[in-house]
Design a protein around this nucleic acid. Structure first.
Lengths: 148, 148
DNA sequence: ACTATACTATTCATATATGAATAAGCCCGC
DNA sequence: GCGGGCTTATTCATATATGAATAGTATAGT
């Protein structure tokens, strides 16, 4: 639902600052497009991201593992799983191995919804692909992955 | 304070999808760095962004104008100005020309804080600049600005 | 002058994120 | 086996964002 307004504008101190802001702005635009596309199938980017890890893993993941994979704090995952559960897309199941842990299991509806999300996301990716034709993808990937 | 966990991970449907996710991830990393840098001087990225528009404009802006410049909805600006006002960085002033409007005026403390923020942000920009040496800046800018 | 329409900011409900505090359960060294 | 130190999830307070609903003000067209 929300996208940060924070830095949608820019600060012109240096030329590179410009590029940095451009990159952040472009990412926000892409996120908006993804949110919009996923909204068509009743998902948000956050929900889609969580489902994608669960579906790919093929078995229930503890909320801690989910949080790690999504690079967010656990309290965020607690709330996200609350919403996913309310939507009927995942179920909380106990972990018999570790009674502290709670695992999130994707429901059949969750799998369906995820598949529909993938189809929507692929459209956005195709769009994006056209836009970045005309830049060397390898170089771009290398630079982007250097930002950590 | 917050950065989206949403898409910090990736979905490997196509190679270009990878690049799209890389871009989004990189932007989140940059935002985190900016948030961290600004935290040193008691600012968030959202607050810094609002201050930057107000300082550059040189005179009080209505909340609607602020929202437009920050590309966010007005209710967001209402809350952001609430927090900036609580920090003593801006003041709400009435607009004698239009009794509907409320303008945000930067305080002297706000100007100082902004200047301190700029110094912090410049450090992050310098860091970023090093990272992207090795890619043609013009090409990158052109591609990024094509995303809208 | 009046009315319809549009724009102002605010409030409210909600989603997404963080981080601190808490309670429960695990496990290592003794 | 037990005490201390992790890790687990949750709750709470808060920040940032959206969008719907509202109240007040402005303005254009008649």
């Amino acid at each position: 639902m929300n996208k940060p307004a924070k830095l949608r504008s820019r600060n012109p101190s240096t030329a590179d600052g410009q590029t940095m802001y451009s990159l952040v702005r472009a990412a926000h635009v892409l996120e908006s497009r993804l949110e919009e596309a996923l909204e068509q199938v009743g998902l948000s980017l956050a929900k889609f991201g969580a489902l994608s890890h669960l579906v790919k893993e093929g078995e229930p993941l503890s909320l801690s593992e989910c949080a790690t994979k999504m690079t967010c704090v656990r309290s965020n995952m607690t709330q996200l799983v609350d919403r996913l559960e309310a939507d009927g897309l995942v179920r909380r199941v106990e972990d018999p191995e570790d009674r502290r842990a709670v695992r999130a299991a994707v429901t059949p509806l969750g799998k369906e919804r995820y598949a529909a999300g993938v189809r929507e996301v692929e459209k956005v990716q195709a769009e994006f692909s056209k836009t970045i034709s005309g830049i060397d993808r390898g170089t771009l990937e290398r630079v982007l992955s250097a930002i950590k």
